[in-house]
Design a protein around this nucleic acid. Structure first.
Lengths: 199, 199
DNA sequence: AGTAAAATGGACCCGCAAGTCCAAAAAGGG
DNA sequence: CCCTTTTTGGACTTGCGGGTCCATTTTACT
């Protein structure tokens, strides 16, 4: 299990994942073949299977993990500091900006629906991401509750779940419509309603 | 363009679409081949291409349309009659029940991400569906406003957009987590907040 | 330096599934 | 009842892309 990778090896592996991620962003999962990845990253077929013995499946999973990491890190430091209403708005803007910049491609969504949601690996990646995401929002809500800015009666976790769902749906709708208006509506209405809930 | 179909022809075409839809629900888009459809529907290869000259792409699009139709009709009559709070809750329940019953497969989501969101056909199907869906929710909000149950100041369309986003996200999360809790949270929080917004 | 392990190149295989083709059987229409 | 159009059957082609293999080079370690 502990396959040893040399420095060069890890670099190559990294290059493959990043190249595959880029390729997938540009052309979609379905259109991306191992040969495309090979060409782009200047590697050979045997290298792909050397670093990803599970073949395409394993590579896609690695790319999914890579993309999932970016989702949260792109929202920092705002997501980790939801301690005032201006901070919430700054976070809101960073989310909108992120997806606006990303355009019509949500690599993660496509990757996961390609891998099949049933595969335990893909599921784990998404669940992990969503759990962390929701936990950070919940922490923000709790903080505001302690600060007396939100009704302490409110179920923070449920509110966070609803907000997260709104964000996800907003992104999904953006993928089809090309507009971030639903995402903005979900964030704005969600945050507005939190603000309205003070004692 | 106006290829004439006899009665038998339209029946066969219909059978193909429905068989393909069923196959896709059971096994997913990627795993479904034209040969599977052919076998299931008791047709021949030439028939598939006779009725769908554009090949698989055209067939998938027809299936997507078919599924999109069901999404809204499954919510009726509730969605069309959001005229009282009990009616809203009945609708909420019907949505949850629909997706709970559907399980981890969202044929439409997968179909669309398979077809590629860029293809104008797929995009049109989804946009059309979402527009109608949102319009019906908006109508419900407006009705409640006229009835004095919701603050007339509220932007009905924006509220509907946010609620729709929450639903979409809830469904998306269900596909990964297997649980409808996010969908329920989105609906409950969304509706609660509408109720809280009275004069 | 020498050896074992890891990294690389690239030719090759192979199965699958989309799509083609032609010929035969039903439908329709006057 | 005949001629045209539609419908059907199913064999065949084809290309693509994932995966295998082995020979060669490079790296790491003592």
């Amino acid at each position: 299990m502990t396959r040893t990778l040399t420095r060069k090896g890890t670099a190559t592996r990294q290059r493959i994942v990043e190249g595959a991620a880029a390729e997938i962003r540009e052309r979609g999962v379905i259109a991306t073949t191992l040969d495309d990845v090979r060409a782009r990253t200047g590697t050979s077929k045997s290298q792909l299977f050397h670093y990803f013995p599970g073949g395409k499946e394993e590579l896609l999973l690695a790319v999914a993990r890579h993309e999932a990491d970016r989702v949260l890190s792109d929202q920092q430091p705002y997501l980790g500091e939801l301690t005032s209403w201006p901070a919430w708005l700054a976070w809101r803007d960073s989310v909108v900006a992120r997806y606006l910049g990303q355009g019509r491609r949500c690599p993660l969504n496509v990757l996961v629906s390609q891998l099949g949601r049933n595969t335990p690996g893909a599921q784990a990646v998404v669940s992990e991401l969503m759990n962390q995401w929701q936990a950070e929002i919940t922490a923000g809500v709790r903080h505001m509750q302690h600060a007396g800015a939100i009704d302490p009666q409110l179920d923070a976790d449920r509110a966070a779940a609803a907000l997260l769902a709104g964000i996800q749906g907003g992104v999904l709708l953006m993928l089809s419509t090309g507009s971030v208006s639903h995402l903005e509506a979900a964030l704005d209405v969600g945050i507005d309603n939190l603000r309205a809930r003070f004692p």
